Simulated scan of single mutants.
Amino acid sequence: MTTTTTPPATAPATTGQLSIRSLRKDFGNVTAIKDLDLEIRAGEFISLLGPSGCGKTTLLRMIAGFESPTAGAIELAGSDLVGVPVHKRPVNTVFQAYALFPHMSVTENIAYGLKQSKVPKKEIGERVHEGLAMVRMLDFADRSPAQLSGGQQQRIALARALVNRPDVLLLDEPMSALDRKLREEMQVELKLLQKRLGITFVFVTHDQEEALAMSDRIVVMYDGKIQQIGSAQEVYTHPANSFVAGFIGKQNFVEATVESVTDQAVVLRSVNRTIIHPAHAEANGLPLAPGQDVRVAIRPEAMRLRVATGEPLAPNAVPGRVASVSFLGDVVQYVLLLGEGKEVIARVPQAQAVQLPTDQDVLIEWDAEDVKVYADES
């Protein structure tokens, strides 16, 4: 049975502030990072989120020192890190594969970095014990990595990084190899651990749910650039562009044309007339104009369904037909067919779900405040 001993809370870090300015990284004729600026606050949990190839791991490796920038600056608490060797940076990295030494015990793995840094033997013992308690693995001190589960190996990799007392901990998709249930459990544990220690965590992931669950702020990246920075709620409810809208959570997109713009509403023409709340009368931060082609985005959970009765269509309503129904636990998902074969998804809380058979004609409705509009970004 694993002990639940918890070490005293560590004072919040004051030296973990990262400033990244005009950073660029070229690999031959390919630019992986394009003039990137980012301020990471001391003691925050920030996630770099984006699809494969967006530049997030390259950015992490430059902070760690495994890659050198082509141009730009990386400063930690005002000190330039560019050119500083990996082992001399107050930064540690937890890798996707954990990188534990198979021939060493758990204790020896955690102590390895401390020995390399010539930490006194007595202090090594104290820090290893502290690290094991921190990740609730005291009862596993004498085991080998082969005797540990994936989640336990991840905890040991964390302890090995944390006993070196870094100002910044970098995590490169460390939970991607875990099954879903264990990954969700580790998300909670990792977030609580970070809050207790007050260390700056920079977390790389392509899993949007993981980033939403854990982060103080999320940096959404695509094509070597930052698309949006904000809290989980900000990037979900107010996506900066159609890429973020489509990447964070499920989204329904409909092509439309602006029909009219007044002080009261914006009317767009697509499969129906959609009224936009005045606060949303812009796309990508720019005013909308009649005749402009745009993309309308509506979250599946914003859509309401009822059986069609043949009444005239009101704004923010469109007829559809049920193509499939899926029970997803807490929600029921409906795939709906509009005119010309267009598919949209509606998600309804299980307690509010309506029994709708396949091929049922329905009316799909939503509120103007739930509509987002984006201009062509090509």
Rank of each mutant, 00 (worst) to 15 (best):
I74D: 12
E75M: 12
L76Y: 01
A77N: 15
A77V: 03
G78S: 06
G78R: 02
G78N: 05
S79T: 15
L81A: 10
G83T: 05
G83R: 12
G83H: 11
V84L: 10
V84W: 00
P85Y: 07
V86H: 01
V86E: 00
V86W: 02
H87Q: 14
K88M: 12
R89H: 00
P90W: 07
P90T: 04
P90L: 01
P90A: 01
V91A: 04
N92I: 13
N92K: 15
T93Q: 14
T93L: 14
V94H: 05
V94Q: 02
V94Y: 00
F95D: 06
F95P: 04
F95L: 02
F95W: 05
Q96W: 10
A97V: 09
A97T: 12
Y98V: 03
A99N: 03
A99T: 11
A99M: 10
F101W: 09
F101R: 01
P102Q: 06
P102E: 07
H103P: 07
M104D: 10
M104K: 15
M104C: 10
S105V: 08
V106G: 08
V106S: 02
V106T: 12
V106M: 11
V106L: 09
V106K: 05
V106F: 07
T107A: 11
T107I: 04
T107S: 10
E108Q: 14
E108M: 13
N109Q: 03
N109F: 00
I110D: 09
A111T: 08
Y112M: 14
Y112F: 15
Y112P: 08
G113E: 05
G113D: 04
L114A: 00
L114I: 01
L114V: 08
Q116M: 15
Q116L: 15
Q116E: 15
S117M: 15
S117C: 13
